[in-house]
């Protein structure tokens, strides 16, 4: 799995490439915690090149979302979520906790 973080004026974009499972989820957690620990709470996760996501990955995002939304200081939004991943997210019922944008530009513009 590959993770790159780009800081924009209004938010940070975290781009993840690969498969997010119980083995790789801690890397994603580290990247996201690295941002929230520095007071960066407006985050976009670009999942265009994520082709697998297990519930372990979703829990990392849920914990990040809790942290970001606390005191209304920000939010974690998602973009580029592949259909089958989006389906499993909605099936398990976690979909309502995230705003999902079709493209990166709209996700960034949300902030």
């Amino acid at each position: 799995m590959e993770i790159t973080t780009t800081e924009y004026k209004r938010c940070d974009v975290v781009k993840t490439i690969g498969r997010i499972d119980s083995y790789t989820a801690p890397e994603l957690e580290e990247a996201l915690t690295g941002l929230t620990d520095r007071g960066r709470y407006k985050l976009v996760l670009d999942m265009t090149d994520v082709d697998f996501m297990s519930s372990k990955g979703w829990w990392v995002l849920i914990e990040t979302q809790k942290n970001c939304k606390r005191y209304n200081r920000g939010e974690l939004v998602l973009t580029g979520v592949q259909e089958r991943i989006r389906d499993s997210l909605n099936l398990v019922g976690m979909g309502s906790y995230f705003q999902i944008y079709d493209d990166l530009l709209s996700a960034v513009a949300n902030f």
């Binding site: 829990w59 914990e63 979302q65 809790k66 398990v92 019922g93 976690m94």
Partner: peptide, 19 residues
């Protein structure tokens, strides 16, 4: 898992079996 509750109260368990 109960995903009708508010975000802050979510506990990370049960989603795997449900899936």
């Amino acid at each position: 898992p109960d995903f009708s509750i508010e975000l802050e109260k979510l506990k990370p368990r049960g989603a795997g079996l449900y899936l």
